[in-house]
Design a protein around this nucleic acid. Sequence first.
RNA 1: GGGCCGGUAGCUCAGUUGGUUAGAGCAUCUGCCUUUUAAGCAGAGGGUCCCGGGUUCGAGUCCCGGCCGGCUCACCA
Length: 512
Amino acid sequence: MSFDLELFEQRRQKLQQIEALGHEAYPHRFAYTHTLEQITAAYSEKTAEELTSEKPSVRICGRMQSIRGHGKAGFADLVQGGQRLQIYVRKDALGDNGFALYRLLDLGDLVGAEGYLFRTKTGELSLHATTVSLLAKAMLPLPEKWHGLQDVEARYRQRYLDLIANPEVRRVFAARSRLVRALREALERRGYMEVETPMMQPMAGGATAHPFRTHHNALNLDLYLRIAPELYLKRLVVGGFDRVYEINRNFRNEGISTQHNPEFTMLEFYQAYSDYNDLMEMTEKLLPEVAEATCGTTTLSYGEHTIDLSRFSRFTLREAIREFWPEESSRPTLEDFSDPQRTGAAIEAWNRLQGEHDRLVIPAGTSQGATLAHLFETVCERKLIQPTLIYEFPVEVSPLAKSKKDEPGWVERFELFVAGMEIANAYSELNDPEEQRRRFELQAALKEKGDREAHVMDEDYIRCLSYGMPPTAGEGIGIDRLVMILTGSRSIRDVILFPLLRPESSPAPAAE
RNA sequence: GGGCCGGUAGCUCAGUUGGUUAGAGCAUCUGCCUUUUAAGCAGAGGGUCCCGGGUUCGAGUCCCGGCCGGCUCACCA
């Protein structure tokens, strides 16, 4: 018999002994009077004398995470909702039967206890138990209390153990929840309405990405999991919802990394009668607002950096390339960016400055705009640690954005970078249906040339724009990455409860 | 997909140049202990060294292949 089955068998026998003592193995409910959080809030300030005279009677429950036996007495820690409370049991207080039950409890068991609160000699708030009961048995042993669960794979596959064993993990996901709530509240205050648009779409539009494919049997219809909600949200703006937002999953069939999970959560919001300048201002207000609500501060430490989410700098994409260029003598001029040859010379200069490692190779046939976008990413992205708005993007990489009035090759678009990561992407929405058709046609031509991520022609979306969309600005914010920054997490897997992993070949059987 | 690193008891980890029967702490079991807190004391049990080949008198250790994971590069948000 393997050791874990042996432990399982031991606990099964204890369960039988508990039932033989007349206790239910899996009772249906437990009427607690306080959560441990409420106990902490109400009694943590009380002195030993106050507690002795009050002798507050409470019934509590939680998971037993520590046992310290003392012969005919003992201490145990119950944990519930991230709070811990020590219970003190004595044979003379519990009686023979109750004490026998206590002796049959294991680490990890869910336990209820009734008694009165007091302080021990060492001053710790504790429950002097008069009754202890089993609420559910842990048939498998928990990870070790001191080191917690370290094995990264086990932490992701068995997140429940991670949450039990590692208190900071619980705090990360609590912060994530506060962030999403803060975003909803911030948007509702600004007059936005939350909506839900299709996750299964006949055409995967609104972004450049490989979609997942699926199939609906009854309609015999191939569908894609959405890569973005964008085109549906703008249909709602046409329909007269002037301010809409959606917080939901996007799916992209691409690589997995510390910054990419195949499904990830995006906030997208659209605001009619506004342009990208309005959203830049709003972004600069929104981020400190939600950071404050989530973390109580806008100053966050991330790796070796201290990031201030209340101070933003702004560069145009072209300025940023110049600003972060590593060498004065080869720094390109703004004029160089409108000339493919001179841009090519700048890329050669860049490659000369880098080792083998950071070389930028632009495939033949890449448009001037896409080339500049690549150059920007290579030169600047990882250096944008403090919040930075990069604005004005090439039209070739922005098929849904409205061109600048004076420069049709550039669009009114910005992206927010923090900690070297792209956090947000926003633009003045293109609402001229004829121009939108030309943009889709350009994308179709790219697709012909083998660009698998180019946008597809969406006739229904063009028809929708043809009914008239108000001037509108829209923005998407990557929630997972924002949570990473707010919680100091270095991997996106640490802010997603169940990140995608290859399935285990066969999980070890827990019973039988 | 490429490169680098890792997988040893339920958990956290050692394991030397390839050499006796693979170790420690926690957890488990037995005994003692009625204010401890990483409780303590005495004892015991617990291993598919990720899987499959190979080299060798001998493999946790070396070689080859595979599985899973981490980091990183490429792609992307």
